[in-house]
Amino acid sequence: MAVIEAADLVKEFSRPAVLEGRLPRLRGLFSTKRDITRAVNGVNFEVEPGELVGYLGPNGAGKSTTIKMLTGILTPTSGVCRVAGLEPSRDRARNARNIGVVFGQRTQLWYDLPLRDSFEVLSDLYNLDRTTYRKRVGLFTELLDLSAFLDTPVRSLSLGQRMRGDLVAAMLHEPSILFLDEPTVGLDVVAKARLTEFIAETNRSDGTTVVLTTHDMEDVERLCQRIIVIDSGTVLYDGDLSRLKERFMPYRFLVLTLAERSIRRVADIPSATEVEPSAVGTVLPYPDRSVVLRFDPREVTTPELIARASQVYQVDELSIVDPRLTDVISQLYDGLLT
């Protein structure tokens, strides 16, 4: 049975209309006109227990609004959502015990208190017994390397430290579902790697269901088996990461590193187009000796293409590269606009 369900979920916001014409500010004082925007416009999806789902979309697509409905912060305008069988906005407090939430932009910790104090307060609020509490804090302290700053007030923590603290705060009460809204935003490479590894591990070993929104496609490629892409409040794609790539970027790259002293010619190879090396996205070891060919696997098989290429070039090394998710996603968004 699905642990998270969203059915025809809609959320509308209204705010005072911006007036045009003469003295808009003065008239605005007396106007009752309101603009209504639909941040989420009929979203449907289900998440099974133990899944790790990436919830993606451009800024303002409705990601955070959906998460806020699933966590009980916002009440849906219409439609239903259920988390572990509960309607979050109606059964807010019970739902809160089942879920853990991290918002990358905003801390949930006590700003003026040492990190440890925040954990203590939370353990009281969630009524954890002392042994469980000590065990979990001990475990997290080790896994996320918190010991150096456990007694530092939250306001003096670096962003990466604070995020780790927030993650622990969200997981102290052993929630079966974890919502992470941009948890890696603004983090450096090391901090990010540590965090994503921890998330993956939590999902793998405890079977925690994770819903992750992010702009960082590296996170998604590293973590998510399944992704849901949303834009303008509706779901564009829901399924496997690999199928998404097939559907929206049906080609792959053949990267050839030419033998030294071989002559680099402009050559016409059937069913493949030569593209800039930057299209691959990774840094090539010998850019001046590299040739990148883009091809569609439905038109030509990989061995066939390699055979054709070796007739033209003297090849030292070769590799097949899949398109990056970033490019797929931007392709997907572009497709929407045109």
């Binding site: 806020k68 966590t71 009980g72 912060i73 807010r92 407090a93 019970r94 809160a96 015990r97 939430v101 918002f103 905003r106 949930q108 609020l125 969630y126």
Partner: peptide
Amino acid sequence: GEFDRVLLRPV
């Protein structure tokens, strides 16, 4: 938006 946090706790 700090009220978010209030709604996330079982209190």
